[in-house]
Amino acid sequence: MITIIAAAAENDALGKDNDLVWHLPNDFKRFKSLTTNHYIIMGRKTFESFPKPLPNRTHIIITRQEDYIVPEGCFTTNSLNKAISICPKDKETFIIGGGQIYKQSMELADKIELTRVHTEVEADTFFPKIDDQNWELTESIFHPKDENHQFDFTYLTYIRK
């Protein structure tokens, strides 16, 4: 199963200048719990936004740079299809960004785990529109803003129809 996982604002904003535009600790915990011990696929810029590889996950980085050096335990490839082919077929694989990789993966994914952040922000990277003809919302869990979360947000799970 291929799952897209992202956090996007009401205007589909993902980030700006290769960084997130909010800090939501509970969303980080959810991301960690869902992706730990799985393969994660990302673009080079997303990978470079991390201070180091995320623990207990196999990283596959999509890049056009043939000589791109990655730490041990990480892999590179030059296309989304090749990245998916590296992943075990019997385990869930996560697409974790960025915007272009999300756009390419919308036709290939089986599930979307989207954290909808209830604000609109300025951004340079956006999540693609979710077409209701292709996706069914199967779960929605609201989280109000609090002392640790600047914005209200909702965990949304979509399954391909």
Rank of each mutant, 00 (worst) to 15 (best):
I5S: 10
A6L: 06
A6E: 05
A7Y: 09
A7L: 10
A7E: 09
E10S: 09
A13G: 15
A13S: 13
A13E: 09
G15A: 08
N18T: 03
N18E: 13
L20P: 06
L20K: 07
L20I: 04
V21P: 08
L24G: 01
L24Q: 01
N26K: 12
D27G: 04
K32G: 01
T36V: 12
H38F: 00
I40Y: 08
I40V: 14
I40D: 07
I40A: 07
M42W: 02
G43D: 07
F47A: 08
S49E: 09
P55L: 12
P55M: 10
R57I: 02
T58P: 00
R64V: 06
R64Q: 15
Q65D: 14
D67K: 12
Y68V: 05
Y68C: 08
P71A: 12
G73M: 02
F75H: 14
F75K: 10
N78K: 14
N78H: 13
N78C: 13
S79M: 05
I84P: 05
C87D: 03
C87F: 03
P88G: 07
E92A: 06
E92S: 05
T93R: 03
I95W: 06
G97D: 09
G99H: 00
K103P: 00
K103Q: 15
L108C: 02
I112L: 13
H118C: 07
H118P: 03
H118D: 14
T119H: 01
E120Y: 03
A123H: 02
A123P: 01
F127W: 04
P128K: 08
K129L: 14
D131H: 08
D132L: 11
D132N: 13
Q133S: 15
N134Y: 12
E136Y: 02
L137K: 13
T138P: 00
T138H: 02
E139N: 12
S140R: 07
I141P: 00
H143I: 10
D146R: 03
E147L: 11
N148F: 06
F153I: 01
T154K: 03
Y155C: 10
I159V: 12
R160Q: 14
R160E: 13
R160T: 11
R160V: 07
R160I: 09
